[in-house]
Design a protein around this nucleic acid. Structure first.
Lengths: 113, 113
DNA sequence: GTCGATGCCTCGTTAATCGATGCCTCAGTG
DNA sequence: CACTGAGGCATCGATTAACGAGGCATCGAC
């Protein structure tokens, strides 16, 4: 039998991290840019506040799913540049699979007539 | 502009309530049956523990999205039968729409190449 | 008689989000 | 010059749902 998944311990707590990791597969970026990118590509459906973003980045750092280095932004400002690690890519794949599985199950229930 | 939605304040906190409401559109049911139904129709992908279920049902009661009455289960056991209210149906529609919108946005980001 | 299923519920912990706040720099504007 | 808004970083505290672990009762089967 597949893993049973408690509703939220998998659905939300990790969604933001997953989106950050996905963004970083496009190349290194700093926090502010990650947040604005996610908002832009979602047509402003998603909101990514700094108080959610930076704690999430720190969790990613702790797990070695991203690495950080101080550098400069496109506008020559001081910025912390994040880069996804190979472990981060594995994690992203796992989370994306889990997300699809759970939201698929929920969507199927919602669409049932 | 559409409502901007913070990632999790909408995605998870309410998902279980939404699934309960959806289950009750099939007809009145008691808590234990709701939980088992959700697990069964999701092929055990979802897990619905009692310690998540009953608090969720109480929140639904407080908002008058469901009504409850003591009765009997199919096995003639004492059981609390829940019934969805018109307000509950409205709420379900709203939550389902929000769920689709957010998961759609996330899925689009994940599928981007 | 004991075990598993059916049924209800609560307590305490955990963990992520999020609003508010703070600090710094720079460009533009009045 | 002073001010404001955008670009950048970060933390603190409150909130809030979920969840594991319990507790209690009945019933049928072994």
């Amino acid at each position: 039998m597949r893993n049973r998944t408690s509703l939220s311990s998998e659905l939300l707590p990790g969604t933001l991290e997953m989106l950050i990791l996905k963004t970083l597969t496009r190349g290194p970026a700093h926090g502010y840019a990650i947040a604005r990118h996610l908002e832009r590509v979602s047509s402003n459906v998603l909101r990514v506040g700094e108080s959610s973003l930076y704690p999430a980045l720190q969790r990613l750092l702790l797990n070695d799913w991203v690495q950080a280095a101080w550098g400069e932004s496109e506008l020559k400002r001081r910025a912390r540049i994040y880069r996804i690690t190979p472990a981060g890519r594995k994690r992203l794949a796992q989370e994306a699979e889990g997300f699809d599985r759970i939201t698929g199950a929920i969507a199927a229930i919602l669409e049932a007539i």
